[in-house]
Design a protein around this nucleic acid. Structure first.
Lengths: 163, 163
DNA sequence: AACAATAATGATAATGATTATCATTACCAA
DNA sequence: TTGGTAATGATAATCATTATCATTATTGTT
């Protein structure tokens, strides 16, 4: 079995038909901009900003506007298809939720030098156990319904250390 | 012993003289805007934005400008005196590092409804053990010098759940 | 097939937080 | 005191994001 690097090594990525269904069952249309944006997000392991997504969309579909990209990223976010992050550079970055070993896996290692972002999934079991525990205690103590969490490590990558 | 709520219940908060020394030893001046900004940060447990800090500064010192607030927050950040966070509302929020049980304690519980932020320090020992472990493994695996980390939980507080 | 009704788009302008510019002021050291 | 530099504050500029609104595309209905 050959696993394409371009698809993040994950098989079974939803094909357009499946996405279409997600939209249709909510009474929404699966338009070309939406298909193309999902295509861009599905073909990278990077964490792209709206602008960067727009630039990639633009190459093949210069008619699709930046506004539409922003609007649909918001739509996709509400649909639970993408997640929005903030890594400390001045913009939001988007990630397709699908393709992770675990859903709600929002753990990143960020280089404060070159802004490179690495997804990691080491210690998942331990981490999940730990998170669950804290979550439970915090939600009880503060009467919160916890829905999500973010763990990020910041540092300097090899190159930026040297430089 | 009476512990003022206003000072976050922490004794031994640096007084102006101590701050002054921090600046002086770096060949910097301990100016009035700097003193006032530190005063504002020292007198709250909230996570204020630059604008909010400016507004509090303004009350007693209307001559101090917003630009100066931004500039000095950046200065304080570089000096390791304050930390900047992003909680998902459109601005950065600042926190005096001093006054936490442990340094580099950046763990928050954020209500996505009312934007209220709760600092927590439960499970500190476990958390530190866990973080250390991940940090070590990640820095080895990816050749990163990890300098910092952030853990944030998102959810709805009691009031926002009800509403 | 023609037709409303409404979803979605794209161009443009507006917003809001943050940063750059620059002339002025305050402080320190000789 | 005086020259040099740090710091300030007013203003304008920037950049990501959002709001507005007229236009286009799609769908369900006759």
């Amino acid at each position: 079995m050959i696993v394409s690097k371009k698809t993040n090594g994950v098989m079974g990525r939803k094909n357009p038909k499946k996405w279409e269904h997600r939209f249709r069952e909510m009474g929404m249309r699966f338009t070309e901009p939406r298909r193309v944006i999902l295509e861009v997000l599905g073909n990278t392991v990077e964490h792209l900003s709206a602008e960067e997504i727009y630039m990639r969309v633009y190459k093949k579909h210069p008619n699709i506007g930046l506004t539409t990209v922003y609007r649909n990223l918001y739509t996709l976010e509400r649909m639970g298809i993408v997640t929005k992050f903030h890594f400390g550079d001045g913009c939001h970055r988007y990630e397709l939720i699908e393709g992770h070993k675990k859903p709600d896996h929002h753990h990143h290692l960020v280089c404060t030098g070159c802004k490179r972002i690495i997804d990691y999934d080491d210690f998942m079991d331990e981490e999940i156990a730990y998170i669950k525990k804290v979550e439970k205690a915090l939600s009880r103590k503060h009467s919160f319904d916890i829905t999500d969490h973010v763990i990020q490590f910041y540092g300097l990558c090899k190159k930026c250390k040297a430089a």
